[in-house]
Simulated scan of single mutants.
Amino acid sequence: MGALVKTEQPDPAAPRDEAQYLTFVLGEEMFAMDILGIKEIIQYGHVTGVPMMPTFVRGVINLRGAVVPVVDLAARFGRPVAKVTRRSCIVILETRSEQGAQDVGVLVDAVSAVLTIPAAEIEPPPSFGGGIRADFIGGMAKVEGRFVIVLNVDRVLSVEEMALLSRGGDPGEAAS
């Protein structure tokens, strides 16, 4: 009988020479997120609104019996609420917080591709305004002559910060 070999999953926080990113479009801009936290991509379907939520929380969906909140990424960035088209998708991500793992859906205008981007091709985020909060940006990658904003998904989808905002609190309190 053969020996049981345990394969280790890569640590998402460990530095890597290159990583795979899902690229997607919001408005006219291209964004990317590391695929390690992505569980699946689904077509935009029926979203049930939840009263008293921030405008960037579209509502919840039933995903195989689990209640999953859906965040409108454009609205999360302080832009107008996204218009749903036939290319609109919900990217299901697993986020981690002090309370444990939580699935969150992210509404995007369109999914583009999965790209392998070398770490050397990702520059630090600019120190000046880029239309979204600086702590939401993990870096700037140059792909085919175009800049792609690499998101810091843990900050964008901070469950603690979104819960604080739904109660009318100051998001600066969640970062401390």
Score class of each variant (00 low, 15 high):
47 V>S: 05
47 V>A: 01
48 T>V: 07
48 T>C: 00
49 G>R: 14
51 P>C: 02
51 P>W: 03
52 M>W: 13
52 M>L: 14
53 M>Y: 08
55 T>M: 04
55 T>Y: 07
56 F>A: 00
58 R>C: 01
59 G>I: 14
59 G>R: 06
59 G>H: 12
63 L>T: 09
64 R>S: 10
65 G>R: 08
67 V>S: 06
68 V>F: 10
68 V>G: 03
68 V>Q: 03
69 P>M: 03
69 P>L: 04
69 P>V: 08
69 P>G: 05
70 V>M: 07
70 V>W: 07
70 V>I: 10
71 V>D: 00
72 D>Y: 02
72 D>T: 03
73 L>W: 09
73 L>A: 09
73 L>R: 04
74 A>W: 03
75 A>D: 14
75 A>M: 09
75 A>I: 11
76 R>T: 05
76 R>H: 10
77 F>P: 01
78 G>C: 01
79 R>Q: 11
80 P>N: 08
81 V>W: 15
81 V>N: 07
81 V>I: 14
82 A>F: 12
83 K>L: 15
83 K>S: 15
84 V>P: 04
85 T>I: 00
85 T>N: 01
86 R>V: 11
87 R>Y: 08
88 S>P: 06
91 V>P: 00
93 L>W: 04
94 E>K: 10
95 T>Q: 11
96 R>W: 13
96 R>K: 11
96 R>G: 10
97 S>Y: 09
97 S>N: 12
98 E>S: 15
99 Q>M: 05
100 G>Q: 07
100 G>H: 09
103 D>N: 04
103 D>I: 03
104 V>S: 02
104 V>E: 02
106 V>H: 01
106 V>Y: 04
106 V>S: 07
107 L>S: 11
108 V>R: 01
110 A>Q: 10
111 V>T: 09
111 V>R: 06
112 S>I: 15
113 A>M: 08
113 A>P: 06
113 A>D: 12
115 L>I: 07
115 L>H: 07
115 L>N: 09
116 T>H: 02
116 T>C: 02
117 I>H: 00
118 P>H: 07
119 A>V: 13
119 A>N: 12
120 A>H: 11
120 A>K: 13
121 E>F: 05
122 I>R: 14
123 E>R: 11
123 E>H: 15
124 P>H: 08
125 P>Y: 15
125 P>D: 14
127 S>R: 15
127 S>V: 13
128 F>Q: 09
128 F>Y: 15
